[in-house]
Design a protein around this nucleic acid. Structure first.
Lengths: 130, 130
DNA sequence: CAGGATCCGGTAGGATACTG
DNA sequence: CAGTATCCTACCGGATCCTG
């Protein structure tokens, strides 16, 4: 059903959406933001993060940590001590992102009630369940 | 710095992460941002969005639209004309979000190269593939 | 034109056990 | 302490067909 011609209008959206989509790809993880927030106030150790985020599994913590490190958002420092010690710290890039994320948090807190209200209204008006 | 932060209260993290997590729950959809961006410059029709976003399926468009509408981010206007006509427009709340999102876009564009470089470095250094 | 219903695969993410 | 490995499930998202 799709013709071989490409529509020009999509390029604009793509050009705008692509970087954001990439960011979200790195950040949209259920835990990425939590980790960035948790690591924002200084170097954190693995177990600290695990306890701080509370609900995350070791697996997801490791995976998300790796992803963030790979994208240059986290700097991983291994201390070759007898009990292994690893610290994670935000890079400058990530600190900027954290500031931006703060705006999101702010927006979310400011409109949390409005969103809840909108949901309730929607469910009452249009969402007549069977 | 490194003295009194040992008890990184999980409550703080949760309190901060929760709203964000909610936002992301509404926004982190693969298409939500694209829709918000596409609808930012005025009322858009269903088919317009479908063509603009280019890659989205009718199903996901509908679902994402519903979700955004339910959260009070989109206002849906149905014109009971013979060929049905539906327009979607950002609410004030969503316009604010869009501004915030712009920061994210900005951040992404500014650090896109750095991220790519970090990835390459990571893959070269630690990511010796099998 | 706008969207609902259904099937179906890929993957994000959770639980658990093992290790250097 | 800081991971890794394996299994398993839920849901996201695509394709297709049907409707008002």
């Amino acid at each position: 059903m799709s013709q071989s011609h490409t529509d020009v209008s999509a390029e604009v959206i793509e050009a705008e959406a692509c970087p954001v989509a990439e960011v979200l790809d790195h950040v949209a993880g259920k835990w990425s933001i939590g980790i960035i927030v948790a690591a924002a106030h200084g170097p954190v150790r693995f177990t600290e993060l695990e306890r701080a985020i509370n609900g995350i599994s070791r697996r997801m913590l490791t995976l998300t940590l790796r992803k963030l490190e790979r994208d240059g958002l986290l700097q991983r420092t291994v201390y070759p001590t007898v009990p292994p010690k690893v610290e994670y710290e935000l890079t400058d890039m990530a600190r900027e992102l954290h500031s931006t994320l703060a705006s999101l948090t702010d927006w979310a807190e400011r409109h949390r009630h409005a969103i809840a209200a909108a949901r309730a209204a929607y469910d009452a008006t249009a969402g007549q369940p069977v």
